[in-house]
Design a protein around this nucleic acid. Structure first.
Length: 759
DNA sequence: TTAGGGTTAG
């Protein structure tokens, strides 16, 4: 005779202990020890129900070793003691120890009850543990607890999550002797996970209308989980309001998330604002919801609100905010978030650090990105992908990408197709072709070559490496060609001098039922520009209007450029005038057009307009306006814009900018000044401009220097030899002239035959 | 006294 001698007697500590056990707050070790001491002092250590409660307090507070130690010291144990400790092992993540305990228990007189089975089955919720779950099911049948409400509903849960057939879960559900709300919710959630909206709706009606069980927040969350359209979300939202559950923090959070996924950001914000209680989930949902709907600024705004309200930030909120910073290119807020990461101890968290790494890398802060990557605690495949992508953005980053890929192969992580796609992005130069081919073979080996994304990346890589035949082969291999696949191959042809073939592919794409998009349209339109194919260009322009892409800046700028290059300045101007919100790319296109047509005055006027609209001109804008001015011999204007670029806009002049300046001075015959400028830059193109000016102004002295320099920089360029020999010819220095012509033949440099053609 | 369902991030 032993245990629970005072079981019927209610000890003064019991209500207190129970209230602690029911509380959701974890209890400190000190507090647990104090209670333990009180039980010892009041000689209650033989009252098993009190000791069991204390055991569960130790376990729930995370004081696992103390719980285990206490268990070892206990002279008497009942089924509750064993179940509590098994649950404690599972809470701590040790499945083998939990099952070991279960086996030890079966060696005693204590029989497992419905709670014991429930705890064990809850641990078997992944397919790898289905066998274990089946064994427990067998033991349960022998215990006669299979149809028990608790044990049986855990069986339903196990089959939904670990099983491969919802039929097993349904059978377990129908066998149950008693079904409560939680049991119904389990089966509804099970079908919601497999996105069977019709079954979910039928179960919902049966539960409420036939069995009279009132749905709760959990039921609605499952209903929301499998709704896919805005209409369905609105329906469920209405139903939840009827039951008065729409204000629940969990349902509200799910609603915010789903409205965002359906693109109805206004409803999201409305629900968010109406919620009295806001937890981290809902803050995270609103922040990521805004980001998903291209409202990154608002996402950042919500984050700052959250900080002002001194809400504790978790890893979900931090990573969502950082994602918004990446989208809107907001480094300042990103740095603030970094501060908060350190404050809350999340600086080495994989989810958070991976996005911060991407943000730093996108601003070229590679050292910071690398530091973050090195410190990430348990790097997962996404963290590796982020770092590979960071290297891929670098110029000549392929070697580092390949090195990282090798390191990754040495880990136990499974490489994803996105990993290889990231490495392929770094192969953007002819010299990267061997690396690109290596990745191609890896893609074939890992049988993802038929994946659309991997195939598109291969086409793009071969195109960047100027291997058009291989690009086309990779394109042919893609089983499901999407808009991206077609755009990649059209771009590949258009950018490698095969514009008419690009337009043929465009026709083929349309015949295959793939519509023109904002990606493929600019490529096709610019192919027309190169070919001066104004008729096709006009047809594409009609498509643009029909499909509603006329306000897209990429499409718009390609149209402006196409008309200008085809010689139709009026239509180019008209297309410009139709842009509601022109950005700098649109302005650049029109300025370039004027430059092509020698309309310097108009180019300058558009430049002024751009500045007045508060848009920052970039290096392309300056190249356009400088070339417009230099072509017509506006020396002072060219100099003015060059100075403006350097002094006001802090743009470092590139060789092309210097060449324009040299060209302007050269055309005006101010060759000494031009010569001074060329020496500042020293590029081939600047010397070329100077040489051609010398030829036009018969300047032998500087011309000779320029040609020599040109030959030194590029010995295989025929132009310098010819220009030099022409200069000597004009001077009457025939022998010199002949010498340079002979030199040219010797090193197999031949003058390109001139060519011109029109469609 | 032990147990079961739900929402968020890269």
């Amino acid at each position: 005779m032993h245990a629970d001698v005072g079981a019927k007697f209610i000890h003064p500590l019991q209500p207190f202990l129970l209230s602690l056990a029911k509380s959701s707050k974890p209890i400190t070790l000190k507090h647990c020890n104090q209670i333990h001491a009180k039980l010892v002092v009041s000689q209650c250590t033989l009252q098993l129900h009190l000791i069991n409660t204390l055991l569960s307090l130790y376990s729930k507070g995370g004081h696992f070793r103390h719980a285990h130690h206490m268990f070892d010291q206990m002279p008497h144990r009942n089924v509750v003691t064993w179940t509590t400790l098994i649950s404690s092992h599972l809470r701590f993540g040790s499945l083998p120890k939990a099952f070991h305990m279960f086996n030890l228990m079966r060696g005693t007189d204590e029989r497992p009850n419905e709670y014991t089975f429930s705890v064990l089955l809850r641990a078997c919720t992944n397919p790898a543990l289905l066998d274990v779950g089946l064994q427990i099911h067998g033991v349960m049948v022998r215990s006669g607890l299979e149809r028990n409400k608790f044990a049986g509903s855990s069986l339903v849960y196990m089959y939904f999550n670990a099983g491969n057939d919802v039929g097993d879960a349904c059978r377990a559900f129908h066998e149950l002797l008693e079904k409560d709300l939680i049991t119904w919710n389990l089966v509804i959630s099970g079908f919601a996970k497999v996105e069977d909206f019709n079954v979910v709706k039928r179960l919902f009606s049966e539960m409420w209308e036939v069995h009279g069980l009132k749905p709760d927040h959990s039921t609605f969350v499952s209903l929301l989980k499998c709704s896919s359209s805005l209409e369905e979300v609105k329906q469920i939202h209405g139903l939840a309001s009827k039951f008065g559950i729409d204000i629940d923090v969990v349902v509200g959070s799910a609603l915010v998330d789903l409205y965002a996924k359906c693109g109805d950001i206004n409803s999201c914000i409305k629900i968010f604002d109406s919620m009295e209680e806001k937890d981290n989930f809902v803050w995270c949902s609103i922040i990521s919801g805004c980001t998903k709907n291209n409202r990154g600024e608002e996402a950042v705004h919500f984050f700052k609100d959250m900080c002002r309200q001194r809400v504790k930030l978790d890893r979900h909120v931090l990573s969502s905010t950082l994602k918004a910073c990446v989208e809107i290119e907001d480094l300042n807020t990103g740095v603030q978030v970094h501060g908060q990461m350190i404050k809350y101890g999340h600086q080495n968290d994989c989810f958070v650090a991976s996005v911060l790494l991407t943000l730093y890398a996108s601003f070229g802060e590679l050292v910071d990105a690398e530091k973050l990557f090195k410190r990430i605690d348990d790097k997962d495949i996404v963290a590796w992908n982020s770092m590979i992508l960071a290297y891929a953005w670098l110029e000549h980053g392929s070697a580092r990408c390949m090195q990282l890929l090798q390191e990754l192969c040495r880990t136990s992580l499974q490489i994803q197709s996105s990993t290889l796609v990231a490495v392929l992005k770094s192969c953007d130069n002819k010299s990267d072709l061997p690396a690109g081919r290596q990745i191609h073979s890896l893609i074939v080996k890992s049988s993802i070559s038929y994946h659309t994304l991997a195939g598109n990346a291969l086409v793009h890589m071969y195109s960047e490496c100027r291997e058009i035949v291989d690009a086309y082969k990779a394109f042919v291999d893609i089983v499901w060609k999407d808009d991206g696949s077609w755009s990649s191959i059209i771009g590949s042809y258009a950018q490698n001098g095969m514009e008419s073939q690009a337009l043929e592919l465009c026709k083929e794409m349309l015949a295959n039922g793939i519509a023109l998009t904002s990606y493929s349209l600019p490529l096709c339109i610019s192919a027309c520009s190169q070919l001066s194919a104004i008729d096709v260009g006009k047809q594409l322009h009609i498509f643009v209007i029909k499909l509603g892409y006329n306000h897209d800046v990429y499409v718009g700028s390609s149209i402006i450029d196409m008309y200008a290059k085809c010689g139709n300045v009026e239509d180019s101007e008209k297309a410009f005038g139709e842009q509601p919100e022109p950005n700098e790319v649109i302005y650049n296109a029109v300025i370039c057009g004027y430059a092509h047509h020698g309309k310097a005055q108009e180019a300058i006027e558009v430049f002024d307009k751009l500045e007045k609209n508060g848009l920052p001109p970039n290096h392309v804008t300056f190249l356009a306006v400088l070339s417009a001015c230099s072509h017509v011999g506006y020396v002072e204007d060219t100099l003015y814009f060059f100075t403006l670029m350097v002094n006001k806009y802090n743009i470092n002049p590139e060789s092309e900018h210097y060449s324009c300046l040299v060209d302007a001075f050269g055309r005006a015959g101010r060759l000494e000044e031009a010569y001074q400028i060329v020496q500042k830059d020293g590029s081939e193109s600047a010397w070329r401009s100077l040489l051609s000016a010398c030829k036009n102004h018969n300047n032998t002295k500087i011309g000779e220097k320029s040609a020599m320099k040109m030959i030194e920089l590029n010995a295989s360029d025929h132009a310098s030899y010819i220009l030099l020999s022409n200069i000597y010819n004009r001077e009457g220095k025939w022998e010199e002239a002949l010498k340079w012509r002979e030199k040219m033949t010797k090193i197999h440099v031949k003058k390109d035959p001139g060519s011109s053609w029109l469609i």
